[in-house]
Amino acid sequence: MTLQKSNRSTPLSCAEFQEKLPDLFAAGANGHIEDPALLDHLSTCENCSALVRDLQYIADQARQLLQPTHEPSDDVWKKIQESLAADPSYAEPNEK
């Protein structure tokens, strides 16, 4: 150890950088990075910047999946109707 205060001076390794990613992405900014040490690594490491880009891309693309692609068979509604007909208590105004 030198006398130098070294929390910034030692460049992060890829492993150290990637360890921070779950929290970075969870912080709500979807990988938007402000920490200078991390930015430093990101700007010099092609591999990690590709990783961050891909993870952002995946999270972003996931929203497309909210649009549904599948449809239940007609049987489902038939069964629901049968149950509704059999039980008059559905949506009784007084029910809590």
Binding site: A15, N47, A50, L51, R53, D54, Y57, I58
Partner: peptide, 19 residues
């Protein structure tokens, strides 16, 4: 873990079906 490998990026290339 992805410490070293260099690869092409995914961005722009994945369609909904693949995802």
């Amino acid at each position: 873990r992805d410490f070293g490998s260099r690869d092409t990026q995914l961005a722009g290339s994945v369609d909904r079906v693949a995802l």
